[in-house]
Design a protein around this nucleic acid. Structure first.
Length: 244
DNA sequence: GGAAATGTTAACTG
DNA sequence: GCAGTTAACATTTC
C-alpha cells in the first residue's frame, strides 16, 4: 500500500493518539519494547515513506515496505505476525509486516525534511540542485531516489513521466530546464492527486499508464520494461514520451 | 499454484 | 575497502 501519500493517510489515522500515554507495548519487533510503556506520544512525523512516532525518550521509525499494514482499535485478536502494538487507554495501534526501529530523538534533526515530497517544507529549488548534480542519472531512478523525492514510489514515477511526456530512460542532464522544472512540479502535484484519490478509494481508476497496456492518448501499445539501476518496471508510450 | 509487485537493507561478488 | 549486484524479507493479487 505504501507510497508517500498513503503514509499521510496513516498519519491521519494515528493522530488521535497524540498526547496519550502508552500503557502496553508488544509484538515481534527486534528491540526492547518495555521502555515504551509509560511514555507519551508527542507527535507523528512522516518523512517520505517513513513514519516516526515521537515519544518522551525515543522515536519509533516505521516503514511499511512493500506489504506493510496497520490497523487502529482492532477487534479481532492480533496473531503472531504482529510486529508492534501500542495500547493506550483510549485505543490501540497495530502494525504488521513492516520495518520497525527505535531511533534517538536526535536522529530526527538529522533528517532533510525539505526532501519530503508531501511536506510543507518541500523545497523544489533544492531538488533541482540535487538533480543537476547528477546529470548521468536516468529520470526513472531520479524520481525513485528517496534523498531527492522522498515519498515517490513506482506508481507515482510512471504516472508523472507520462504526464510530462518524458521517457523513463532519459538522462537528467539531457532534459531542457523547463522539463526539469516540470518533473519536479509534477512529482509533487501528482502525489497530492494520488492522496485524494487514495482517500476516496478511486486511485486505480485514475491510473493512465501504470499496469496498463495501451496509451490513453494515442491508443498505441504501451511499452512495459524494467528500467534504470533500480530495475523497476516502467510503463510508457514510445510515441507520447520523448527520450532525451 | 506460480509469478509478480506500491520497497529497503544485508550480504554477497569482483 | 569500494562499487555494483543479488538475496532476503513477506503478503496480496492476478
Amino acid at each position: 500500500m505504501p507510497e508517500g501519500p498513503s503514509i499521510i493517510l496513516m498519519k491521519e489515522s494515528l493522530q488521535p493518539f497524540v498526547g496519550k500515554q502508552v500503557t502496553e507495548a508488544s509484538g515481534n519487533a527486534k528491540f526492547d519494547k518495555d521502555p515504551l510503556t509509560g511514555q507519551t506520544l508527542h507527535e507523528i512525523r512522516t518523512f517520505g515513506k517513513q513514519t516516526y512516532l515521537v515519544l518522551d525518550q525515543q522515536a519509533i521509525r516505521i516503514h511499511l515496505l512493500m506489504f506493510g499494514s496497520y490497523s487502529v482499535d482492532e477487534q479481532t485478536k492480533p496473531d503472531k505476525s504482529l510486529r508492534l502494538s501500542l495500547i493506550f487507554k483510549t485505543g490501540s495501534l497495530y502494525f504488521y509486516t513492516c520495518s520497525v526501529k527505535s531511533v534517538d530523538l536526535e536522529f530526527l534533526s538529522s533528517i532533510d525534511w525539505e526532501a519530503d515530497i508531501m511536506s510543507d517544507a518541500w523545497n523544489p529549488q533544492k531538488a533541482e540542485k540535487k538533480l543537476k548534480s547528477k546529470p548521468q542519472m536516468m529520470v526513472c531512478d531520479a524520481l525513485m531516489d528517496q534523498d531527492i523525492f522522498s515519498g515517490v514510489g513506482n506508481i507515482i514515477k510512471n504516472e508523472v513521466l507520462f504526464r510530462i511526456g518524458v521517457q523513463p530512460e532519459s538522462l537528467i542532464g539531457n532534459l531542457p530546464p523547463k522539463k526539469l522544472k516540470e518533473l519536479i512540479a509534477e512529482a509533487r502535484n501528482y502525489s497530492f492527486d494520488f492522496l485524494e484519490w487514495k482517500r476516496e478509494f478511486v486511485l486505480k481508476k485514475h491510473w493512465l499508464v501504470h499496469t496498463k497496456t495501451t496509451c490513453p492518448k494515442c491508443g498505441q501499445k504501451l511499452v512495459k520494461k524494467q528500467t534504470g539501476l533500480g530495475k523497476r518496471r516502467s510503463f510508457y508510450c514510445e510515441k507520447d514520451q520523448k527520450l532525451y
